[in-house]
Simulated assay, not measured.
Amino acid sequence: MTEPHVYEVFAIKYAAMPDRQPWMNFIGVDAHDGPLGLDFYIWLIQGGGRTWVIDIGYDREVAEKRGRTIIRNPVEGLELMGVDAAAVEDVVITHMHWDHVGNVGLFPRARIHVQDREMQYVTSRYMQYPAFRHAYELDHVLEMVKALYGERLVFHDGDQELAPGLSVHHVGGHTMGLQAVRVWTRRGWVVLASDASHLYPNMELSRPFPIVFHVGEMLEGHKKLRRLASSGDHLIPGHDPDVMRRYPAPRPELEGIVVRLDVEPVA
């Protein structure tokens, strides 16, 4: 067995949605629940002589179209970490919702890793229904089709190692083809859950997020994530503002923008 590389892992915040009511975040609202916002991240993994970008966020045009805010384009966050999007060679798309795949054109050299089932899903009969379709942007789907015809897509069917100590794992639930990323770090196996669990309470309390393709798969996916991670502290949800409080910035000037996930939490 190949010895895994030891990776550094960063969450880069690019947008926020501070005011969300409980029904927007959980199936089965508790009377004691209060408002809980979302942060929007991409993730950067570096090690073994390679750079991996996990998800690529959305841009200002889509933010305006959907009435969302954006702090900075995700590629600007990468620049703060010394990474030029135009030079990135590997991008992992956890799923193709509008806030995860909106900047394909800014990564012209990248191989784009996606699950078979996600590309199947976005062109399937389910897209007849607004309940499923509203979380996708047609232009983003077409960009991925262009990338396919340009021989830039790398398809994965389930769980697969991308490099020693770095792998993708099909979870489903939130979308048909959602995948999480498992990465070996100095503190053990960290799992980037992405939207398999938007918030810590989604998986800690088994209370699914309401934008969902298959509730049963989502709940089973939480169990899978726990098996993959070294501990609960090694599971990183996709949109929880608490991630920015639990983990330290890599440099003081990046406080509130980037946190490092390959070190122990500070809170």
Rank of each mutant, 00 (worst) to 15 (best):
L178V: 13
P210H: 10
A267L: 11
V154D: 11
S231L: 00
G172E: 01
Q160G: 11
D240R: 07
P130Q: 10
R227W: 12
V83L: 01
D116N: 13
P250T: 09
F40L: 15
H100K: 11
A131V: 15
L44V: 10
R207H: 04
L106W: 11
N73T: 14
P130F: 05
N73K: 12
Q21W: 12
Y41F: 14
R187L: 03
R66T: 07
P74I: 09
N73M: 13
V266Q: 13
Q21N: 12
G77E: 14
A193H: 06
I211S: 03
V62K: 09
A31W: 13
D90C: 13
V53G: 01
F10L: 05
D30Q: 12
S124H: 00
V91Q: 05
V168C: 02
L228W: 01
D39Q: 07
I93A: 14
E89F: 04
Y58N: 03
G49Q: 04
N202D: 05
G48C: 09
P210C: 01
A180G: 06
M17V: 14
N73C: 10
P74Y: 08
A196Y: 08
L225I: 02
R226Y: 05
G165V: 05
V91C: 02
R260M: 04
R245T: 12
R125G: 14
V122G: 08
G221F: 09
F10S: 08
A163V: 13
P18L: 03
L235T: 00
M119P: 06
E161K: 14
K223Y: 10
A229I: 02
E137F: 00
H170S: 13
G165N: 04
Q179T: 07
V258M: 10
G238L: 01
E79L: 11
H134L: 13
F132E: 13
R20V: 11
G102C: 06
V141G: 00
I211K: 03
I257G: 11
R60F: 01
D33L: 01
L44P: 14
I211P: 03
S197N: 08
V263A: 10
I236L: 03
H170A: 10
G150Q: 12
V243T: 14
G150S: 06
G238Q: 06
I71T: 10
P237F: 04
R187T: 07
A267T: 12
A110E: 04
L225F: 06
G48K: 03
K223A: 12
E204K: 08
A11R: 15
K223P: 00
I71R: 07
L162C: 05
P241S: 07
M24K: 15
I236Q: 02
G232L: 09
E118S: 06
P241V: 00
F209K: 02
L138D: 10
V263R: 12
Y136W: 08
M24W: 15
A180M: 11
D33C: 03
I45W: 06
G221I: 08
M1H: 06
Y58C: 02
A267I: 11
S231G: 01
R182Q: 13
A131R: 15
